[in-house]
């Protein structure tokens, strides 16, 4: 199960806030964050890293997928 968090079109700091909320909800699933700006990728990466989660970022045309690995994956 992958939870999706779409932060496209949100201006700072709302991408970070939305992802923070998803992380705060807990749960073991992976979270896929859909991002449209490099700025938001950097900020979200910073948040995720500070929470000690593993993640990876891939660019697909003009959107970024940031996948936060859940437990047991």
């Amino acid at each position: 199960m992958v939870k999706e968090v779409d932060v496209r079109g949100l201006s700072c700091p709302f991408p970070v806030i939305k992802v923070k909320k998803a992380l705060d909800e807990g749960g073991k699933e992976s979270i896929l964050v859909i991002i449209d700006t490099e700025v938001s990728v950097e900020n979200v990466s910073r948040l995720v890293r500070s929470r000690g989660h593993d993640f990876k970022v891939e660019k697909n045309e003009d959107i970024y997928h940031l996948l936060i690995k859940g437990e047991g994956s």
Partner: peptide, 12 residues
């Protein structure tokens, strides 16, 4: 706050 990603767009 910067450590957890609260960085304004202007910074970039």
């Amino acid at each position: 706050l910067a450590q957890i990603g609260f960085v304004p767009a202007g910074t970039h």
